[in-house]
Nucleic acid binder design. Structure first.
Length: 857
RNA sequence: GGGUGGUUAGCUCAGUGGUAGAGCGCCUCGUUUACACCGAGGAUGUCGGGGGUUCGAAACCCUCACCGCCCA
């Protein structure tokens, strides 16, 4: 194998594109369903076909790639399956906007032409995110790329629809649903976002004479559709009115006063107006009291059917007009404005949602939700971090039936056909409707097909090799924000479709990426960052490492450009350390030398490597990405670069370094493997260059060698580190420049004295005969120096006094404990022993420092 | 209104009973056999307030205050 050289500096752009296409061409990402290896499967949370890679995707995908790459190296048949969601409303909106620019609506084209247009749009401008994922380094299996509107996935939709219908879990009913008057479609509960908005609360007097009653509302225009006033049955204020009627002003309709225990007597006057066709709670009251549903708003939220001057007005216009008219009649008894209250908005276009009575298709969720809850309750599916499980239960145990029909054209059309005499037929895959039947014009909620993602992408309903090999998937990695949108729905459908086998073993939830001050990123705040810009500027590895390092389970993370620059610095550090190692003959060739033949420094780094490998692997396997990143970062930078390389320089300089060259080679080789899942590009480049190997992608994951853990060497090196730090501090205090060589020598026990030349090299000391003018004492170790007379006594005194104060404080803390009877009686022996040792050490320090101070004069 | 998470260094955050940590920022010195995208040294905290449990509390319990998120 021929070894290449490393460029003098690291430029991510020079290696990323080259390595990525090499990986794809070599087929490293492609999973094999016939492999005997144990499977590891992740399906990507499918981004919208309209989407671009934002920082949240970058986080989500970094974590998934990290797990996939690690498992691949650990010998699993790893499949990370990519794809996209057709994103019904979002995509339709995009194409409609294009048409609008030409002065057209989708109706001008007609359904078939419009859908064709959407497909054309997808071919031309959709799926930009896929190319951007490549920039991040995602090791997804492109040969299995899926799209929710693909033929196979559409077949899955038909199949599950029929299956659910036959099990009586899908039904059609007239209900109050959330309606977006702009998108002109029904929405599910979770497609509605609530915010506290400014509105008004007006109190209106209904009836006259002895039968007056006051009701309050934030939507005055709905009074046009009122069919009752409701009060609490035990409310004595109104008991005389129950069963009587009152007149609705303006339209002069006589409506009954009904008693309903759901009315809160403490809110407002205790009496509420009831508009069953335009409010979900009122609809329920209407059912209980057989009230009429009078529809007074059309699909565009314009007033209709009132045979009044309000007909044709927009809802807001009507609201004002109704209040004005009532005021003119003297029927407004109170007005509160602004009145802050929760208002629902369309999650796609932010239009205020209008509750609307209409006929829609629903999934009956109760039995499905029970199974989905139980799967987590009994541990077949684990939610990480566990703290987020209550949220899941809270929602899934109280889930309303799911409205799945959408009045759109882009999506899976509802496979129900209606006959001329009201017949209803559900048409499964490969079936066709009887002649003369007409298909339901609506399409399914996008999340209906997304709910099938973990198995529709593997070929279900066909029993494919992929399905057999890779289902159920191993881990689902996603943000907690779509726990309800998507994760819960996959649980509902997965368990149902796959005979009770849940779609994944573990749900790993991460948080949101926020700005550097922890504020939510939003266009209006102007604090949105573009991951691609960071990749351009600092490299994909730097961005990935930053995101992984911030990923504490289930917690949001702040992100600043400075942090990404810091990760780039880490990458540069690795690059330079490798260059240095290669310059000094580090190698992976041949067997690792016998431990007993190594010096303490070599044994120490192997020990640290073993410990780090074990800890890091464990943390990654338990989805502790932040802690894992921290551990490996400090091993690489502190242990390896700051100490091992520095302590080894003397050996390299002296030319007697065969063991160290091999040990260093080993440590780098293992470090690159460990870091590869998080920083795939630079590790691949360094490793292949350094070792001459083919690729890290399929290299074996490091094992932690317990036999390499060596506490004795760790203790020796800890002493060397202390001596070096203290002497450096002394030099610094004394104003000796870092590069200035001065005479010095160590008086130390044999295990430390053995490394005198290594320490001297680092400290720029010239060992040899001289008359010392100063000394630094570190416990039992003494370093004598010659400062050529000019010792800065004041600086030395300051330092010693500071050390003395610290030692005295430590001693006092220890003595308080040791003099405490309770502590001595109840604290565990190991703790008492530790405090005793601390007492002894600090006492010795105080004695030594006091003597030094006395000698200073 | 119901849940739920948080409050630790200037900033962003780790730290689930035994002398308070990291990254960035800050101060001083420095072209020393990798690296100034660097090295060395340094400063910085009544761990939100109050009470309790304990020999011992940033951590456990109670309570208050403030901030956030989810749901209604």
């Amino acid at each position: 194998m021929t070894k290449r050289e490393l460029a003098p500096s690291f430029t991510p752009a020079d290696i990323e594109a080259r390595l990525y296409s090499h990986w794809v061409e070599s087929g490293y990402f492609t999973a094999d369903s016939s492999s005997p290896k144990e499977p590891f499967t992740i399906v990507i949370p499918p981004p919208n076909v309209t989407g671009n890679l934002h920082i949240g995707h970058a986080l989500d995908q970094t974590l998934q790639d990290c797990l996939t790459r690690m498992k691949r190296m650990q010998g699993y048949e790893a499949l990370w399956l990519p794809g996209m969601d057709h994103a019904g409303i979002a995509t339709q909106n995009v194409v409609e906007k294009q048409l609008a620019a030409q002065g057209l609506t989708r109706h001008d084209l007609g359904r078939e032409e419009f859908v064709k247009k959407v497909w054309e749009w997808k071919a031309e401008s959709g799926g930009q995110i896929l190319g951007q994922m490549k920039r991040l380094g995602d090791s997804v299996d492109w040969s299995r790329e899926a799209f929710t509107m693909d033929a196979i996935l559409s077949q899955a939709v038909l199949t599950i629809f029929k299956k659910l219908y036959d099990a009586e879990l899908i039904y059609r009913a007239e209900r109050i649903i959330n309606w977006c008057p702009r998108c002109l479609t029904a929405l599910s509960d979770i497609e509605v976002e609530h915010s506290d908005d400014e509105g008004e609360l007006v109190s209106i007097k209904y009836g006259s004479g002895g039968s007056e009653i006051i009701v309050a509302t934030t939507r005055a225009e709905t009074m046009l559709g009122d069919t009752a006033v409701a009060v609490h049955p035990d409310d004595e204020r109104y008991s005389h009115m129950i069963g009587k009627t009152v007149t609705v002003p303006l339209i002069n309709r006589e409506i009954p006063v009904v008693a309903d225990s759901h009315v809160d007597p403490a809110f407002g006057t205790g009496a509420v107006k009831v508009t069953p066709a335009h409010d979900p709670n009122d609809f329920e009251i209407g059912l209980r009291h057989s009230l009429a549903n009078i529809v007074i708003l059309d699909a565009d939220a314009k007033v209709i059917n009132t045979k009044s001057a309000f007909d044709g007005m927009d809802r807001y216009e009507a609201r004002k007009a109704v209040v004005d008219a009532l005021r003119a009649e003297g029927r407004i008894v109170a007005e509160k404005r602004p009145y802050i209250h929760a208002v629902g908005h369309c999650s796609r276009c932010d239009t205020t949602v209008e509750p609307r009575l209409s006929k829609q298709w629903f999934v009956k969720v109760a039995p499905l939700a029970k199974a989905a809850g139980d799967a987590v309750r009994d541990g077949r599916v684990v939610i990480e971090p566990a703290e987020l499980a209550p949220r899941y239960f809270d929602w899934i145990d109280n889930m309303h039936d799911w409205c799945i029909s959408r009045q759109l054209w882009w999506g899976h059309r509802i496979p129900v056909w209606y006959g001329p005499n009201g017949e209803v037929v559900v048409v499964g895959p490969g079936e066709s409707a009887p002649a003369g039947y007409e298909q339901d014009p609506d399409v399914l909620d996008t999340w209906f097909s997304s709910a099938l993602w973990p198995f529709s992408t593997l070929g279900w309903p066909n029993n494919t090799d992929d399905l057999k090999k890779f289902y159920p998937t191993s881990v689902l990695v996603t943000g907690y924000d779509i726990l309800f949108f998507w994760v819960a729905r996959m649980m509902l459908f997965g368990l149902f479709a796959m005979d009770g086998v849940p779609p994944f073993g573990t749900i790993v939830l991460h948080g949101l990426v926020r700005d550097q001050f922890g504020k939510k990123m939003s266009k209006s705040r102007g604090n949105v960052v573009d991951p691609l810009e960071f990749i351009d500027k600092y490299g994909a590895d730097a961005l990935r490492f930053t995101l992984a390092r911030g990923a504490n389970p289930g917690k949001d993370q702040a992100l600043a450009e400075d942090w990404v620059a810091g990760s780039r610095n880490f990458a540069t550090k690795l690059w330079n350390a490798t260059r240095f190692a290669m310059m000094n003959g580090a190698t992976v060739e041949g067997e690792l030398p016998e431990l007993s033949s190594l010096n303490a420094i070599d044994k120490w780094i192997l020990s640290r490597l073993a410990e780090t490998t074990a800890e890091y692997s464990e943390l990654l396997s338990t989805y502790e990405f932040a802690r894992a990143s921290e551990v490996i970062y400090h091993f690489a930078w502190d242990d390896l670069c700051d100490w091992y390389l520095e302590l080894s320089k003397e050996a390299f300089a002296s030319g007697i370094a065969a063991s160290t060259q091999r040990v260093l080679g080993h440590v780098l080789d293992q470090l690159f493997r460990l870091l590869h899942p998080v920083m795939p590009f630079i590790t691949e480049e360094l490793w292949t260059t350094f070792t001459g190997g083919q690729t890290l992608m399929t290299a074996v994951w490091p094992l932690s060698h317990a036999s390499h853990v060596d506490k004795e060497s760790e203790s020796t090196v800890a002493q060397l580190q202390r001596v070096i730090t203290e002497v450096r501090r002394f030099r610094n205090d004394q104003g000796v420049k870092p590069s200035q060589k001065i005479p010095g020598r160590f008086i130390a026990p044999a295990d430390v004295a053995e490394y005198a030349s290594a320490m001297a090299f680092l400290l720029k000391l010239e060992l040899g005969e001289f008359t010392p003018s100063a000394s630094v004492e570190i416990g039992a170790i003494k370093c004598e120096l010659d400062l050529s007379g000019a010792v800065d006594v004041a600086a030395e005194r300051t330092r010693l006094e500071k050390d003395l104060a610290a030692a005295k404080k430590d001693l006092a803390t220890a003595e308080v404990k040791l003099n405490n009877e309770g502590f001595m009686a109840k604290a565990p022996e190991s703790v008492v022993k530790e405090i005793r040792e601390r007492e002894a050490v600090t006492k010795a320090d105080i004695e030594r420092i006091t003597a030094q101070l006395a000698a200073l004069k």
